[in-house]
């Protein structure tokens, strides 16, 4: 039977809305106001219309940053999701070692982002860092301040180190929720390890994996602190991701108008992708439920 949906419960989120108004909605409205004006400081503004949007849409700098950003998010997702699942599958399922693994894996998640950046910045240095020194001693040319490939490898490995645990923890939670009966049935059918994974574990983990992908995508798409601390966007502009470019434009050059137009487009892309993920997720839930 089809039921009408009562949406009145949404009124209960009004207090939150009020808080969010101050922390997000009003600043965002201000950004929209900035994006159609020009300023030379002193809180004086001049009408510019859609000029900044046009300029940004035609700016190679923004498209390049977007390309780098998509590449970064794509690569870390392609590594972290399978690796996280692999780790979760191989974790002890119960007892002391299970808790031990869980605590150990949460540790990178607890470290502040700028500290993660600093750790890797020092770790990779050729003169005093363990990683950089070792690679150098092995005769591998590794210098993340000058070599583009080295810089990319460093920020990707850093992100994998920092966030794979999150995927693993989510995947582990998904695995734990599978009733034993499924495994027993698979055993009776003499299903192979791969088939157990493919037809039992993976479908049952789908919900949490979607959350993991969404979280990792959004976080990596908005990443600023870690690559900024490690490479500062260099060498050249090789690791200048969207937010690094945005901060350079808004605070470094004080181009408030173009930066505002840039942030609105950035925000729209994130909003679109989040909506797509959210819709896919809720629809998966409904089909399963």
């Amino acid at each position: 039977m089809e039921k009408t949906v009562n949406q009145k419960a949404w009124f209960l989120v009004l207090p939150v809305l009020l808080l969010v108004a101050f922390s997000a909605v009003i600043p965002l409205m201000t950004v929209v106001n900035y994006s159609v004006q020009d300023t030379f400081g002193n809180n004086q503004f001049f009408w510019a219309g859609l000029e900044w949007f046009e300029e940004m849409l035609r700016s190679e700098r923004m498209w390049d940053a977007l390309g780098r950003q998509l590449m970064f998010s794509g690569i870390i997702l392609a590594i972290e999701i399978p690796l996280g699942i692999f780790v979760a599958l191989n974790m002890p399922k119960s007892g002391f070692w299970s808790s031990f693994c869980l605590v150990l894996m949460s540790l990178p998640l607890l470290i502040p982002w700028n500290v993660v950046g600093t750790i890797w910045q020092i770790f990779g240095r050729v003169d005093i860092g363990l990683l950089g020194y070792t690679l150098d001693a092995l005769g591998i040319n590794y210098n993340y301040t000058q070599d583009i490939l080295a810089a990319w490898v460093t920020i990707i490995v850093m992100d994998v180190w920092h966030w794979t645990s999150l995927v693993a923890l989510l995947a582990f939670a998904g695995l734990k929720s599978i009733p034993d009966a499924y495994y027993q049935a698979a055993k009776i059918d003499q299903a192979s390890r791969w088939k157990v994974f493919r037809f039992i574990e993976l479908p049952k983990m789908m919900g949490v994996l979607m959350i993991a992908i969404l979280l990792r995508f959004m976080d990596s798409f908005m990443i600023y602190t870690e690559p900024f601390v490690v490479t500062g966007g260099g060498p050249g502009n090789a690791t200048t991701l969207l937010s690094i470019d945005l901060v350079k434009m808004a605070l470094g050059q004080f181009d408030l108008g173009p930066a505002a137009a840039f942030s609105i487009m950035y925000f729209l892309v994130i909003l679109l992708i989040s909506w797509v993920f959210y819709t896919v997720m809720t629809n998966l839930d409904k089909r399963e439920g």
Partner: peptide
């Protein structure tokens, strides 16, 4: 409200 740099077109938009 001065700091929000309002303009008529954006006010109408919102």
């Amino acid at each position: 409200m001065d700091w929000m740099a309002w303009t008529w077109p954006t006010a109408i938009f919102f």
